[in-house]
Simulated scan of single mutants.
Amino acid sequence: MLPKHKIGMPVFMCRFKIYIEGSSWSVSEKYILACDSMTLMVTPHYYDFFTRGMMPLHHYWPIKMDDKCKSIKFAVEWGNNHEEKVQQIGKAASRFIQEDIKMDNVYDYMFHLLTAYSKLMKYKPTVPENATELCSETMACKSGGLVKQLMDQSTVKGPANVSPCIMQPPYDSQTLNSILHQKANSIKQVEKWEKYYFEQISQKNLVATSFSVMIDGDDRKAVEDVKEKNFFQKDPDE
């Protein structure tokens, strides 16, 4: 784990970071994905506005909710034997957050979202008589340090020089089903690898137990290590 300083704040670079929700939606998802580490994402119940744009095994590693410990153990074992692929997944997630989810795109998304909501309104909103107007500068002034710095960075300084992006039309049924099918297949592939891995571990334990009289502890551990490395030389297709 190597320390890295960014915007005056220490950040620790890890090979893996785990994202798991608490009792409700968690704000930490985008921050974890932006750290260049491969995110071990426990199956979420709640979705952020960008979550469905990510692909398993490309932006993150899927973790089963109902068997988290075994699923995380396998993900770590796989990652430790595929360091280059882990880095690729971590970098892909970071690029997605920093480029696709940059503030300009977020503001455009909010504009289109609020515009669509406004068309559904059945009344004309009015400003209450005793309302107090708050500007973005007033909100930022109450903060300090890094929080104020980041709020200043995200503050709109003036009208945009370009028009908002044009919203792409929704996917047609065939394209949407293809994307969903690809996601489902990626998750199933991980589950197959995981199942095969623990089956091999179980078989090795049986072999080690059978020959425990002939092989002392250190030698048996060495044999198991070799077998485990052989498993990771090539991902099982079945």
Rank of each mutant, 00 (worst) to 15 (best):
residue 185 N to I: 10
residue 186 S to Q: 02
residue 187 I to R: 01
residue 188 K to M: 00
residue 188 K to Y: 07
residue 189 Q to D: 04
residue 191 E to H: 02
residue 191 E to L: 07
residue 191 E to I: 12
residue 193 W to L: 07
residue 193 W to A: 07
residue 194 E to Y: 06
residue 196 Y to K: 06
residue 196 Y to D: 13
residue 196 Y to A: 11
residue 196 Y to I: 14
residue 197 Y to D: 02
residue 197 Y to W: 09
residue 197 Y to F: 08
residue 197 Y to P: 01
residue 198 F to D: 05
residue 198 F to T: 04
residue 199 E to A: 09
residue 200 Q to N: 08
residue 200 Q to H: 02
residue 201 I to P: 06
residue 201 I to K: 06
residue 201 I to W: 05
residue 201 I to S: 02
residue 202 S to G: 01
residue 202 S to V: 11
residue 203 Q to G: 01
residue 203 Q to W: 01
residue 204 K to P: 01
residue 204 K to S: 02
residue 205 N to T: 10
residue 207 V to N: 10
residue 207 V to F: 08
residue 208 A to C: 12
residue 208 A to Q: 05
residue 208 A to D: 12
residue 209 T to I: 09
residue 209 T to F: 02
residue 210 S to D: 05
residue 212 S to Q: 11
residue 212 S to W: 02
residue 213 V to M: 10
residue 215 I to N: 09
residue 215 I to K: 12
residue 216 D to L: 11
residue 216 D to C: 10
residue 217 G to E: 15
residue 217 G to P: 00
residue 217 G to F: 12
residue 218 D to E: 13
residue 219 D to H: 14
residue 220 R to T: 10
residue 221 K to D: 15
residue 221 K to F: 02
residue 222 A to I: 13
residue 222 A to H: 14
residue 223 V to H: 13
residue 223 V to W: 07
residue 224 E to K: 14
residue 225 D to V: 13
residue 226 V to R: 12
residue 226 V to Y: 09
residue 227 K to V: 12
residue 227 K to E: 11
residue 227 K to S: 14
residue 227 K to R: 12
residue 228 E to A: 11
residue 230 N to H: 06
residue 230 N to Q: 14
